[in-house]
Write a protein that binds this DNA or RNA. Structure first.
Lengths: 170, 170
DNA sequence: GTAAATTAGTTGGGTACAAAACCAATTTCG
DNA sequence: CGAAATTGGTTTTGTACCCAACTAATTTAC
């Protein structure tokens, strides 16, 4: 029994009925219909599940996308990596530090521009990436099963649309 | 899979062409097709946009769902609130402390069970909630516009399905 | 009726993240 | 050219979050 905090109250409270007004039947009001809220809930749940999935591998799941993007784009800079990853560059600093210390990546100063680093995977990094990929695949298969094959493409498309188009109005 | 603009780097980098191998055309590999990754990107972007939207009101957007749930469920306990909210109960402790200090909510010990608190909004809390609701509505209208009216219900349904069903396999 | 188990909430430790201030290398421009 | 603006990366600061361990109140079991 690990992370079912979303649904815990239902069963926990079922035993001790009706202490106060709001137990298993919480009124969500307009929240019940707002996309942003459910986007957060879904993301949180999905991420937690991934954490469980990747528990076997000795590397936090947050590192996964980072490692994969470096593997796919050898020599990428930290700024480009941060952008592709949807994170601030300052967030990557300690992560990359850790990955380097543990021998999964190499950071070399570029000859032409000595400000920036070129990031590449080591062999150990590739190996780790492979392990993580298995976990990620399994995780995403779970998501697929939940979504259903025929809605998958559309769903993905909408997610991408949100990521690219929101916040560009003003 | 092209989708050049997951990042705003596209425009930023367009000015200074081709410093290193990977700028606007980053290879996302399998990531480009994985739901979990895009769920995170969409959620992050959406949340950031909400932060902007709610900048006018002097209360962080994370408080919004909390305030609304209390308003809709007067007397709710902190544990039930945490569950409905998809957060750990320990996360709520400092938030509720702050909301109480600022006079938006009241916490009263229950007569029947002196361990738990009953949470209710003050008038100031209701007022603040109204203001936040305007922002949230505007934000969600933006999302709606991006998703498109005919896919909205389905999209929401899938998000809910993910939140409730993921992580219950093992 | 007391000891053990459970439950509500808090505390402490740790991670992940963003924003702003900063440094150093590089480019732009007067 | 040399000063100013820009850019890549780090540091610092502050927030949000989870988990595990804890305290106090309450329920269950013997």
């Amino acid at each position: 029994m690990k992370q079912e905090s979303l649904s815990r109250s239902a069963e926990a409270e079922a035993a001790s009925p009706r202490k106060n007004a709001a137990n298993e039947n919480v009124d969500f009001g307009p929240l019940a219909n707002w996309v942003g809220f459910h986007l957060r809930l879904a993301q949180t749940a999905s991420f937690q599940a991934f954490v469980q999935e990747a528990r076997s591998v000795d590397l936090s799941p947050g590192r996964f996308a980072t490692l994969l993007l470096i593997g796919r784009n050898p020599g990428i800079s930290q700024t480009a990596l941060a952008a592709a990853n949807g994170r601030d560059k300052s967030t990557l600093t300690p992560i990359l530090e850790d990955l380097e210390r543990r021998g999964f990546i190499v950071r070399e100063k570029m000859k032409t521009d000595r400000r920036s680093y070129q990031l590449t995977l080591t062999d150990a990094g590739k190996k780790m990436l492979d392990q993580l990929t298995v976990c990620a695949k399994r995780h995403d298969d779970n998501l697929d099963r939940i979504i259903g094959p025929k809605d998958r493409a559309k769903f993905l498309k909408i997610l991408q649309k949100i990521a690219t188009e929101i916040g560009r109005g003003e």
